[in-house]
């Protein structure tokens, strides 16, 4: 369903992934679930782009992957935030906050006649 909402989400997917990992290391499914739960299932992570996004972040050195075992004794690939990732998260968050604030202002302000 490639509508405006999902496109808009793509740009923010990285930010949400980084934020999620800032709490604790997680595997891909865990990250997806966390975002869904946080937003009360409003935002459905488009899983087709989640994994490429994760791999790209890993390539950029913002997150680190390692194979580990889940509590159900399953092998899974866990991601965690690197120092560079933490820095990037702070930057993106500020930017996002200002951006969202600006958009919100536009939406809230009515022209005066």
């Amino acid at each position: 369903m490639p509508d405006a909402t999902t496109d808009f989400l793509k740009g923010t997917l990285d930010l949400m992934v980084l934020k999620t990992l800032s709490w604790a290391p997680a595997h891909g499914y865990g990250i997806a679930r966390w975002i869904e739960q946080c937003t009360g299932d409003v935002l459905q992570v488009e899983e087709g782009s989640l994994y490429p996004a994760l791999h790209k972040l890993e390539e950029r050195g913002l997150i680190l992957a390692e194979w580990g075992i889940t509590e159900h004794n399953r092998r899974a690939k866990f991601y965690r935030l690197t120092a560079a990732g933490k820095k990037q998260l702070a930057l993106s968050r500020d930017y996002w906050a200002r951006f969202a604030g600006a958009v919100f202002k536009v939406l809230e302000t009515a022209p005066t006649r």
Binding site: H27, G68, T70
Partner: peptide
């Protein structure tokens, strides 16, 4: 329900 806070095992053994 899965708790994402718990799903990742911080002390996961190495593969």
């Amino acid at each position: 329900m899965l708790d994402p806070q718990q799903t990742p095992a911080p002390n996961a053994q190495r593969a």
